[in-house]
Design a protein around this nucleic acid. Sequence first.
DNA 1: TCGTGCCCTG
DNA 2: CAGGGCACGA
Length: 582
Amino acid sequence: MNLSPPEQSMHKPSDGNKSEHLLPCFRRSTYDEPLASYHNGSIISHLLRKTIHNKLTSLDSNLLYLPSESNATDDFAQEDQSSSEDLSASADVERPMSEHLQAKRARVENIIRGMAGSQGEAERDCEAARSRRDKRKQRLPLHQEPDVRPKTSKDEECHKLKEQLQSMQRLLHQLQEKISHVYDQNYSENEERGGSEQPSLSEIHHQVKVESSDRAVKNLQETLKCELTRTVSESIDMVFKKLSTTLPNQSPQSPESSETQKPSQDDSPSELSDSEEVAKSHFESPEHQTEALSLVVRKPSPTQLIPGVKRPYPLHQSPFQFGYNAPLHDSQILEHLLKYGPHSAFSGLPCLPASLERSTPDSMEHSWESVAMRSKGHLAQQHHRAGPPGLVAVDALCLPHVKMECGDLQSMAERSSFMSLNISFERCEGLTPNHLKKAKLMFFYTRYPSSNLLKNFFPDVKFNRCITSQLIKWFSNFREFYYIQMEKFARQAIIDGVNDVKDISITRESELFRALNMHYNKANDFQVPDRFLEVAEITLQEFYSAISLSKDSDPSWKKAIYKVICKLDSDVPEDFKSPSYL
DNA sequence: TCGTGCCCTG
DNA sequence: CAGGGCACGA
């Protein structure tokens, strides 16, 4: 289940390794401990411990607070109301701090917004920022309200969460039992039916029947397994999200929050430029993304795309991050999940931009996605109040990225909360860098995978036409690179004076192999099958003879080779189905 | 007509 | 790697 290579580390010096370029949401960063070594339960408690520990250590007393359960509301109108009440109820000591934070936050947001929008809008943005700031004065205290309870309540909170986790595990166990029960029932039914078969029926028919019901049972198993996994991961995400909203320091303000402890905090331009640096480092640092990933990660389906709006940055949605600013009670969540499944859960909540909420024939699919979009949309509303409505949702999708990229200034606690959100085992609706990596490794076995094979080997991907063609396109690109290299090295062999096709061979030490390995297996953590060497050798020989015999004057000479190559596909190992492979 | 794959370009 | 254009086969 560990989706990221364990060797990755946030503080590892850049060595040109591909993993360094992975999107932040795929870096386990400081938490790159071998999660796989934990059992299900212990992963959770481990992460929980870690999250809590980091939150407590990195954020000191003056910013610590714990909103009581009663303050948590899932209605934004109520949120405004309650938070203004909280504000009025606040101790005076808290006021200057809040205002200071708000001012700083407004400045940073203004900068980021200014970068996202056009320069000419700067003045209007200032105006908007001012008005936003005023509005925010009523909204933000939700996360900054003074701690009316003693500090030990944190422990209670954590304890509560742990208990909730345990209860979830219990429920999970019950579910598992039910599933196995269903399976047993099905099985015995099949047995019975098989036993009561009239002897007059042919043996073949009987077998066919049993086999088909076996398939049905297997399908059922698969479906149940999928749902189970999804439900569990969602529950975990939910709990972690709750934890992160329960504990202090929310999203963009946290860098400043920790900064407020520094002695000199004024409105000096230098500070402003610092913030700018932070934002810039996010937008400009190319080392964080060297590959074109705009489609690697999920983008809104065509019906959801806002025309004319160009994404300023790739979306990072896989795995989806939960952002329920409106915490539901966990038992409610579980009940809901168990009752209706994740797809129906929380759909139809307000606050989703109209363009995203438009129902489509497959709205069941989108409702789940919409939840993720919605949560991000909510984030966006804090940052893009003055922006055009369409831009809100789109820009919002970048925010988690901004958060991660500002890592240097961020508290460990925040990162840990985000890390927890990135743990997701659900069947995702887009292709991730991991899928790309997997596809590349699969290329060592198959150069021309059928869409069925792809569906088979990407069980965690929700296939639609777009995804399928994207995967096909990937392999098309892989082939392209492959053939370009082949042609290049074949010509080189001719130049080098190779006279016989039989003199052409490929070993793991060959330049050609290195080039291919670098492309498909950059991390070099995969043992390339020998069969691939053979195939590559055959390909190179084909190119060599075609070129040396001047067959390449025939425009279709490549296609002739391609026909040969496509017959050299071998079976992809079963391991590729499992995400833990990568 | 549609799906697929190659080619070219950015 | 993605997008668009094009050709080809079913």
